[in-house]
Design a protein around this nucleic acid. Structure first.
Lengths: 204, 204
DNA sequence: CGAGTGACCAATTAGTAATATGGTCACATG
DNA sequence: CATGTGACCATATTACTAATTGGTCACTCG
C-alpha cells in the first residue's frame, strides 16, 4: 500500500534559473553520494536557498530524481543517434543502434554507478523517464526497420509493430538498466549473439 | 568479502532415508514460510532429530535450499519435456519448449511464490542447480534445433552453438526466474513476440 | 503579490543492545 | 563403529528508541 504521494509532474514555472540550479546540484550530489544519501536539505544548501523553496519547483524528491534520470537516459539516446548517423546501411544502423545502447549503458554502470542505480530504479518503478526512453527506442528501431524494408534489406511480411516489439523484447535483458545489471557478464558475447539472431530474423 | 562458507556439495551417505526426510521437511517449510523464516532447528524438529544431525547430511542451510531448488527447476524441465514430446514438427517443438518454460515458471511464481523466490535467488547467486537448469535448456534447445535442421525446417548456415545461445540469450528475460519477475506484465505478449522472432531467424 | 523561509508533523532511517541462528565439536550411547 | 546429541561460538537478525528526513503551511519581507 503506497501512501498518497504528491504528483511527480512539474510545479512552478517550467523554465526558471532556480529550477536548473536544483537539477544541476542534484546531478552532482546524486552522482557522488547516491539518491538515498542525498537529502533535500543538501540540495537546498547547495543552491543557497531553503528546503521549502525547492518544493516550489518540484513536487517531491523523486521528481528531482526523474529529471536527472531523464537527462541520463537522454544522453544514452544521444549516443545512439550519433552512432546511427555514422552507419551506412540499415543493417549496420540496427546493429550499431543495439550495440551502442548496450555498451553505453554498461559504461554508465562502471563510470557513474550512482546515476545508473537511479536509472535502474526508475525502470523498476515505471517512472515516466523510463517509459519515454522505451518509447524513443521503439521510435528509433521503427525508423531503421522501415528504412531497411524500403531498401530491400529486411523482410516485409511480418507486421512492422510485431517486428519492432520482437526486437526490443528479445533485447530486453540488455537494454533495460534494471535487467542489464544481471547480464553484465554476458556482454558483449551474449548481446551480440542476440543481435545476430535479430538480423537473421530480418532476412528477406 | 564473503566469509569462508562450508562447501555446498553433499556430505554423508548420498542415499539415505534421513537425507530425504530433511529434503521433504525443507520442501514443506520453505514453501510455507520461506527460506529466511525457516530455521535449521525447525527442520530438525520436523524430522525429530537434533540440529547437529542435519549437518551430517548437508554442509549448510544453503545446500538444503539447493536441493529444493534442484527439484523445483527439475519439475519445470519435466513439464517442458512432456510438452515437447507431444509436438510434431521441430518448429512446434521449439515453440512449445519456450512457451512452456515461460508459462510453467509464471505458474510457479503465482502458486508457490516462496519456492520461486529460492529459484530466483539461486539464479542470482549462480548456484549449481541454476547452472544445471541452464545446461539442460541448452541441451534441449540444441536437440530440437538439430532435429529441425535435419528435417529441413531450419537454416544450417549459422554454427549450431551460435544459434542455440542466441535463442537462449534472447529469451533470457523470460527464462531465468530472476529476470522473469520483472517481465511478468509482458507475458505472454512479449515472450510470444520473441518466440516468433526466433522462429523467423531459423527460416532456411 | 511574488520571492522566500522557520517551524512543524508524520514517516522513515540510524544506532544499538538483546536475541536468535547457522554451524562446529567433543562426547555419549548401544 | 555408526548413530546421534548438548553445549558452545561468532555472526546475523531482531526489537526498540532516538535522530533524520520528506513534505507542508502559515507567515514574513520588500
Amino acid at each position: 500500500m503506497t501512501s498518497p504521494l504528491p504528483d511527480s509532474g512539474p510545479r512552478g514555472p517550467a523554465e526558471h534559473a532556480i529550477r536548473e540550479q536544483i537539477v544541476a546540484a542534484a546531478g552532482r550530489h546524486f552522482s557522488r553520494y547516491g539518491y538515498d544519501k542525498t537529502t533535500v536539505s543538501d540540495l537546498a544548501d547547495a543552491i543557497g536557498f531553503s528546503k521549502a523553496y525547492i518544493y516550489k519547483f518540484f513536487n517531491s524528491k523523486q521528481a528531482i530524481a526523474e529529471a536527472i534520470c531523464m537527462t541520463t537516459l537522454g544522453s544514452i539516446l544521444g549516443d545512439i543517434e550519433t552512432t546511427i548517423a555514422q552507419a551506412r546501411t540499415p543493417t549496420e544502423k540496427l546493429r550499431k543502434l543495439l550495440e551502442t545502447a548496450v555498451s553505453t549503458s554498461v559504461k554508465l554502470f562502471f563510470n557513474d554507478r550512482k546515476l545508473y542505480d537511479i536509472a535502474a530504479h526508475s525502470c523498476g518503478e515505471g517512472w515516466s523517464p523510463s517509459l519515454a526512453y522505451t518509447e524513443q527506442l521503439v521510435a528509433l528501431v521503427s525508423r531503421v526497420v522501415m528504412e531497411g524494408r524500403q531498401a530491400g534489406e529486411f523482410e516485409r511480411k511480418t507486421p512492422l509493430d510485431e517486428t519492432v516489439h520482437g526486437i526490443l523484447s528479445s533485447m530486453n535483458g540488455y537494454l533495460r538498466p534494471l535487467l542489464l545489471q544481471y547480464n553484465l557478464d554476458s556482454v558483449p558475447e551474449g548481446s551480440n549473439k542476440v543481435i545476430a539472431l535479430i538480423l537473421r530474423s530480418l532476412a528477406p
